[in-house]
Design a protein around this nucleic acid. Structure first.
Lengths: 137, 137
DNA sequence: TTTCAATTTGTAATAAATACAATTTAATAA
DNA sequence: TTATTAAATTGTATTTATTACAAATTGAAA
């Protein structure tokens, strides 16, 4: 979780204007777990009445563009978002749509070493993301 | 690439009726590269005039359900499909929407060993998929 | 405090996917 | 081979997610 000040600084550093909508969207992303745009809209609307759904999409696009947040790949035709931009992986529940972050520097090392030896011809590898599929207990 | 006979057998074994639409959708999946439903519709329509878009969605759902094909996770709010149901990973192009299959049994072993030692508390791991992000050259 | 580009809003449009009733068809058994 | 029937396809209408865009508002620099 980030303080409001951290969020403000983050937005400023990206060269974006600090608006209540942007701050609130980022806060909602921390509160909710990998939410869809519509869930964010509902959440943020409580603090910012009159909020437009379009704004949520605009804000999300701008924040993704600046690497302040990330999109989460899913098997549903709905986009979801992740407050954490730092390198990490995801655990996906097979039965529900729950998604959790997964940090593992040791594994990242292992993979990096593996792919340094193993050359992928015709593909310049820049990032590796794991999808851990399973069930939460 | 699978022969028509292989495709027919595959559909039968799954307990589904063999229809021209289903066979053609699977063939289109091999011809196209991780296509969206709409691309499949266009392709298959050439062979099956009067094809309904709804049918494409129905067929895709049924085939995914029976593990004959797979959905591909993307960062766009559009579903894409994969003709290959066997365990494999994906290479994603950062700049375009190109996706390629990636098979690597050695890596699969490495990962399996790693996660046998490393217990994930609260999560029963069933499958690991890598997303290799980068650029095709 | 003014200025202005950036941002938000609101409405409308588009795109992707789904619901569902009517029609057709694949596969089984007579 | 034909009759039967559950499964599959079709066509239309909706829903849901997202985007387009012009007008109004606002954050931040001068």
């Amino acid at each position: 979780m980030k303080s409001v000040q951290d969020i403000v600084t983050e937005i400023q550093d990206a060269g974006l204007k600090v608006t209540p909508q942007r701050v609130a969207v980022i806060q909602a992303l921390y509160k909710l777990n990998h939410p869809r745009a519509e869930e964010i809209y509902k959440e943020v609307s409580q603090n910012i009445p009159g909020l437009s759904p379009t704004t949520v999409y605009n804000v999300l696009d701008a924040l993704v563009e600046k690497d302040i947040i990330k999109r989460v790949k899913t098997e549903k035709g709905v986009m979801r978002y992740d407050a954490v931009p730092d390198h990490h992986h995801h655990m996906y529940c097979i039965t529900t749509d729950r998604v959790e972050d997964f940090f593992d520097p040791e594994l990242d090392n292992l993979l990096q070493n593996y792919f340094e030896k193993k050359q992928l011809k015709g593909f310049k590898l820049e990032d590796i993301k794991l999808q851990l599929m399973g069930k939460f207990e």
